[in-house]
């Protein structure tokens, strides 16, 4: 089990990581989610032993790792851009840690082949890294890290160098591979979808500090403050009268601030009986294959985002009725107004 206590990393007078506490249970995957510049990469590098600690401790099963150099920690680090050794073949890259441990040639070979199969690159053993695509390189990097049989796998934005479609596919693969191997992992990323797809617990980091931690569902459903909500993909934060009206329409008790997702407001033609709903005027329309995205001016609330069913295309100026989906809004704790 990884325990991080009061970890602080400073660059000059600036604390990149400020008094962070974290723990990762064996077999679990924790994602540290934060915008760029939040200090998440420094945190990861400090855990790997690549960044000196200003204060605090990194422990594994209670043992302080302060005097254990990177190569003795048993924490494999997978970089954003893989950092494959370009002069070695794919097989020799993957088998690197095995050779370091003195695994015999034949045993190493079969293990490498297994790992390459696991990441979907069977038959790539003799290729040189430069001939691979970005996605293939990341798979090789993953296999290389897994070959080290790390007690903790550290992943630094493992998928962000890849294009969107590949990212979704590889995220699912990564989750499956980590589960199958029972690997304990810590992932840092700025991409919330990547974090949700791979991790079972989330820690949200901002300005060097962890502002919220919990299971992925928990964090998703109840962001701790406005900034976190917006970072997690909520479209808007509403306060005061606007929050009251929306909550009333959803049939929930009043609160000072709420975060709403784009899909929290469902728009339809106003001719149906709109009792208990909100009414609005369309300001802008954008059609996508799945839905119609609207910006609407809601009576008593102001501008908000809404979605309409596909096939119905209102034009700006049209009146619409809005239904509020209670599951797609989050009540923010008091005192966290933007």
């Amino acid at each position: 089990m990884l325990t991080v206590e009061g970890l602080t990393v400073t660059f000059g007078h600036h604390a990149a990581v400020d008094d962070v506490d974290l723990h990762v249970d064996d077999g679990h995957v924790l994602a540290v989610l934060g915008p760029s510049g939040s200090g998440k990469s420094s945190l990861l590098r400090a855990i790997a032993g690549l960044e000196p600690l200003h204060a605090g401790a990194v422990r594994w099963d209670g043992e302080d790792l302060a005097n254990v150099p990177t190569h003795r920690r048993g924490f494999a680090l997978m970089f954003q851009d893989g950092q494959l050794f370009d002069h070695l073949t794919v097989a020799r890259n993957v088998g690197y840690a095995l050779r370091l441990r003195g695994v015999g040639r034949a045993a190493a070979r079969s293990q490498v082949d297994e790992l390459l199969d696991l990441v979907g690159l069977g038959g790539y053993a003799a290729r040189m890294p430069r001939t691979l695509s970005g996605g293939e390189r990341q798979r090789v990097a993953l296999a290389r890290s897994l070959a080290a049989e790390p007690r903790l796998l550290l992943l630094d934005e493992p998928l962000s160098a890849l294009d969107a479609e590949l990212r979704v596919r590889l995220a699912a693969d990564l989750r499956r591979i980590l589960r199958e191997a029972g690997t304990t992992a810590l992932l840092v990323t700025h991409d919330q979808e990547e974090a949700f797809a791979i991790a079972d617990r989330l820690a949200v980091m901002r300005d060097g500090a962890v502002v919220q931690e919990g299971s992925a569902e928990e964090v998703w459903a109840r962001p701790i403050d406005a900034a976190t909500a917006l970072f997690l993909g909520y479209a808007r934060v509403l306060t005061g009268r606007a929050a009251e009206l929306v909550l009333a329409a959803a049939g929930r008790p009043a609160a000072p601030a709420i975060a709403v997702r784009r899909s929290a407001l469902a728009a339809r033609r106003p001719d149906a009986s709109g009792a208990g709903g909100l009414t609005a005027v369309v300001r802008a329309v954008r059609a996508t294959p799945d839905e119609v995205r609207l910006v609407v001016d809601v009576d008593g609330i102001g501008e908000a985002d809404a979605v309409g069913a596909p096939g119905w295309l209102p034009v700006p100026g049209d009146p619409v009725a809005l239904r509020v989906d209670p599951a797609r809004l989050a009540v923010l704790p008091p005192g966290s107004n933007p």
Binding site: L50, P69, R72, L77, F79, Y96
Partner: peptide
């Protein structure tokens, strides 16, 4: 030479000398 190459080697279990042999010497 990207310093992260040496870090990658270290995180896979290579000591300082071994990291130099892997990353620096071939280049």
């Amino acid at each position: 030479i990207d310093d992260r190459q040496r870090q990658a080697a270290a995180s896979l279990g290579a000591g300082p000398l071994r990291a130099v042999l892997t990353v620096d010497v071939p280049v």
